[in-house]
Design a protein around this nucleic acid. Sequence first.
DNA 1: CTGAAAGCGCTTACAG
DNA 2: CTGAAAGCGCTTACAG
Lengths: 348, 348
Amino acid sequence: VKERQKTVYDIAHKAGVSAATVSRVLNQSSKVSSRTRERVLAIMRDSGFRPNRNARSLVRGGSGQICFLLSNRDVAHSFHSRILKGVEDFCKRQHQQVIFTSFDYPADSEPAPESLPLIVRESSGVEGVLLAGTNYPAFVKSIEHLKIPYVLFGNNLVSGSLALPRNAHAVCFDEQGGAASATQFLIELGHRQILFVGDLSKVWYRRRFEGYRTVMAERGLPVACADIQDEPDCFQLGERALPVMVREWPGTTAVLTQDDETACGILSGLRKLRIRVPEDISVVGYDDIAEVHYLSPALTTVRVPKEQIGSTMAEHLFRVIEGGVRRQPPVIATEIIIRESCARPRPA
Amino acid sequence: VKERQKTVYDIAHKAGVSAATVSRVLNQSSKVSSRTRERVLAIMRDSGFRPNRNARSLVRGGSGQICFLLSNRDVAHSFHSRILKGVEDFCKRQHQQVIFTSFDYPADSEPAPESLPLIVRESSGVEGVLLAGTNYPAFVKSIEHLKIPYVLFGNNLVSGSLALPRNAHAVCFDEQGGAASATQFLIELGHRQILFVGDLSKVWYRRRFEGYRTVMAERGLPVACADIQDEPDCFQLGERALPVMVREWPGTTAVLTQDDETACGILSGLRKLRIRVPEDISVVGYDDIAEVHYLSPALTTVRVPKEQIGSTMAEHLFRVIEGGVRRQPPVIATEIIIRESCARPRPA
DNA sequence: CTGAAAGCGCTTACAG
DNA sequence: CTGAAAGCGCTTACAG
């Protein structure tokens, strides 16, 4: 027994004014006498009036919503939910709503327009879209065709043969720099034989490897990489790296990993081999995902400021929406977080 | 230089048909000759036509969106983001969009209607709302006043003096049962002196304690609880519990914790005291948050099916929206996940 | 300060 | 199968 929603006309009628006046009090317009305003307000309260959002958005030409479109990834992964949080916090201040949508698509075949999420396909559904998660250029291109403002999370773009649209805006964090400073840190601690563990078939991990490689090369130190591919589970990848390390680089005193999960795998494997961390070997992670400092020993890692990535994406999107942004958004800095998993190498 | 969006009239004009016909092809209506359909479709494609969502929603009387309203909690906490994921997955199948909104409010003072999130305050903004996170009856009441369909995540409701509205729908998981089976499990392993570590000032943890207490009492075993309050960080809480345990219950052979983070704190503290897990003492967590099986030893814990909670909430909400649900949704079962942190107690 | 009227961009009976 | 017209519930110049 659902009763019809009240409209501005219902309120106007009861208050003995016009719908225009009701609309004016709804929109805080100053040109309403306080007497009528109070009366209208009281009637709205009593009758439980709720303005129709679709009608408002229609006449205003906008919905005040942006879309957080998470591609090919799980929100339950804290890396992405923290980005979402950053977006939401920023949008709250801008009085914008965030629509959350996940979308999985096959790599690099330009999706048919009708396969794109309805909310971005339709006009005035959202003011703009944030392309989060892992994306491919072909998809970005088809978003581009929609002529809707968008900002991309740049680090997880898998660049294929297709280039990104010229005017694409991407927020990136300094992936290479983070790996470089982690390497620096280990070297300053006295390490010389530092092993990188990761899957170089992934662009993002390769970028981390490059940060490591560059610093090692500069210092004239040996570059060593356990490149383990086709292992979707990073924890497993870490465990699998250990025998490789023992066999090929037995003198390793420190391990720099592609990410925290891999580091967890390494830690677990090391523990089984009764190799102590950090006494016998130092380990550094990457990402600073939650719970990683609950490990014992707590993991030294590279912090990626995920919420800042989110808020920067949102901020930049609003700029794009306002129109006329030329510049790319700033690159987000990373920093090393020193906890318990690293120490000076044992004297030989 | 933003060009005006095309409307159905623009398309109709170019195609030499009426707007009604354009609308019909847009809505897959069967009563359009395939010749006109093709022509209209082609023109829509060429001109990059995107139907206006607000206009559609206005005339249809609904937006096809529901709101995931996360109260007083962080999405970055995987417990909640997994619930969100469950919601999203379910909604995708129902062709509903999910609006994500977080909302913090003070405990138990009924919020003024105008302080409620705009998206739920307005009519036709969302079809219904999912009250996730931690909530208080006064807030639920003010949502109730909106006369909008809603479903509550029941376990984290802090029941104060106010009762919940009679017809409130809540999805709950079996918190007590999970603790009971964990206790059962430890007893079967041979443990007799089992300590519960938690903060009994929180209803949800007290429920877990009750599960433990009931089973212990049934078996005639001693109930022991390190009740540590006013410690917001559960990891710290776990660490702080250790001296208490050593002092008051030195014979403890197994610890049942209020949640996984607390268990991490216990594990870390135990390690510092050189007490081995599970050889010297067994530890059980609760929640089965991500990454917890990356610990060494991997944590035995009670799994809370978070995504299932989300999908059940969404499913039930759609029922409420359709109208005429009498029954409460099913209680979600928990299960114990056995990993490496428990063993038989050492012979005395 | 207030009202009558037009318009936002669709959809949907109603006729034909 | 197709079109003319009314209507969804607001907002906003335009007059007064």
